[in-house]
Amino acid sequence: MQQLQTDFQSRDSLISYVKTLAPWAKGDPSPIEGGRQNAELKLASIDPKAYGETRNFGDGKITRLSPYIHHGILSLSEVRNFALSKCGNPQEITKFIQELAWRDFWQRVLTEHPDWAWNDTEPYKTGFTASDYADHLPDDIERGETGTTCIDAFIKELVTTGYIHNHARMYLASYVVHFRRVKWQAGARWFLQHLLDGDIASNNLSWQWVASTFSNKPYIFNLENVHKYFGNLIDTSPDANKLLHASYEELQIRLFPNIKGAL
C-alpha cells in the first residue's frame, strides 16, 4: 500500500497531484475550496434570520454550507447550534432550522429504505409510466447547450463550480424530467458527478420529489417564476427562453397531455 502526499506548497500543486491520482476525472477544480478553515469562515458569515424571507432568490441569504455539511466537515447540529447562538428567539430562524431538518429527513428515509436510492418509490403522477422516460441524459444538456438560456446558465454554474442554488436545482431537475422526459435517475447521476455536496439521500430523493415518484404531483415551473427569483442574475428574456415562456395551464397541457383536469 502506498502512502499519499498530504503536504503541498500551493493549491495548484495539490490539484496537479490529484490529477495524477485520478487521470479519469473530468473537468476542472472548483473555485470553492474544502477544509475546516473555509467551512468556519462560511459558517461565521451566515444570516439565519434573513434566510427565511430571502432563501428562494438567487441572491438570497443562503449559506452555501452544503459541501461542508455533506463531507461531515461541519455537523448539522453544529450549524444549528451556531444559528441559535446568533438569534434571541429561536422562532426567528424557524425556516432555517426546518431546511436543515430536510437533510436529516432525507438521511433517515434512506437509512430506512436503502433501495429508494435508485428505485422509484411510487409511480410517476404525470400520466406517463417510467418506460416513457429516456434512460440517458441528452448530450445538449450535459454540454449546457440546450438553447434555453437560463437553463444553460444554471448548467454552466453547476459544471464550473459544483454548486447551484436550491431553486436552480429544482428548475434543472424539472427541466430534465418533465420538459425533456428523461428518467430522474439519469439526472441524479449527473448531479452527483458535479455537485460538491452531491449526496445520494438529499439528491436522489429530491429528484424523486420533483419527478413525482416521491410526492403527490410533479414539480413544474415557468419563465415568470425564474424571472422573479433570478431575473437580476441571468438572462430571463422570453426570446432567449421560449420553451419556458408559458402559463402553468399551458405547460400542464403540453407536458402532461394524458392528465385531464388539475394536477
Partner: peptide, 20 residues
C-alpha cells in the same frame, strides 16, 4: 472512486479537506 465517476472538482475538494 472511478466507479463513482466524480468530476475533478469533487476529488480536489475532498483531498484538500483530507490534507488538513
Amino acid at each position: 472512486l472511478s466507479q463513482l465517476d466524480y468530476s475533478l472538482k469533487r476529488l480536489v475538494f475532498m483531498y484538500e479537506t483530507l490534507c488538513e
